[in-house]
């Protein structure tokens, strides 16, 4: 599903070139939940954004569902993200002026779906947010925000779920809900790439990252 082949990403900083990803190669197959662990600043988020087609690698190839997203046009990459990839971030990145249900429905602004509303209600119920549907993010608890973000990530039924420290800001109970969701998604045939600096036992495979290299 996801393949990194000798991927390098460098940034030019004030103190010279920084190698955020250093010849990274790995794969995530459908049904797998791959956990990439490492300390802060080791390049985990860069790896996730590269996998999410948001950050073009300097060298090497990324393949998603058999296709190199960076060979596509920007609009083609946007379409690929809309159809194939779901994101969950530590900071949730909810749209502050949209209600919970509208945040979940956000991907439907790109991919029209006649059943969009039903699916959003389904996800609301699944994540225990049915009573929060018309609340805006500022009115939610931290856990509810992350569950909303998770519901949004799953809305388009992606094949690949990218999660960047999704439990970082959560209490253990909500953290478990999130991890179980990711586990179930993988169990249902999805591919999950999880980056975290915590220990988790839900991964099917764990990769250690240090200074941009696995």
């Amino acid at each position: 599903m996801l393949k990194f082949d000798n991927v390098t990403k460098t940034f030019n900083g004030p103190q010279g070139e920084i190698k955020a990803l250093d010849a990274v190669s790995f794969t995530v197959e459908p049904g797998e939940l791959v956990d990439i662990r490492g300390p802060s600043g080791c390049g985990k988020s860069t790896l996730l954004l590269t996998a999410g087609t948001l950050l073009q690698p300097t060298t090497g190839t990324v393949t998603i569902d058999g296709e190199d997203p960076y060979a596509l046009s920007p609009n083609g990459r946007s379409a690929l993200r809309a159809s194939t990839i779901g994101f969950v971030f530590q900071q949730f990145h909810l749209v502050p002026y949209l209600s919970v249900i509208d945040n979940i429905l956000l991907p439907s602004a790109v991919r029209k779906d006649a059943r969009a509303h039903d699916r959003a209600l389904e996800l609301l119920n699944r994540f225990g947010l049915e009573h929060r549907g018309h609340h805006v993010p500022a009115q939610l608890s931290v856990g509810e925000r992350q569950r909303t973000a998770l519901a949004r990530a799953l809305f388009n039924q992606p094949k690949l779920l990218l999660a960047d420290e999704p439990t970082g800001n959560l209490d253990p109970e909500n953290g478990e809900i999130v991890l179980n969701t990711l586990k179930n998604f993988a169990a249902e045939g999805g591919a999950v790439l999880l980056v975290t600096h915590d220990t988790t036992d839900c991964a099917t495979r764990t990769l250690q990252m240090l200074n941009g290299a696995l």
Binding site: F87, A109, R111
Partner: peptide, 16 residues
């Protein structure tokens, strides 16, 4: 900017 980043992540192109 944060919102724009999120919109792009869920598939919004520059045109949208």
């Amino acid at each position: 900017r944060d919102e724009i980043g999120m919109l792009r992540a869920v598939g919004f192109g520059t045109g949208r």
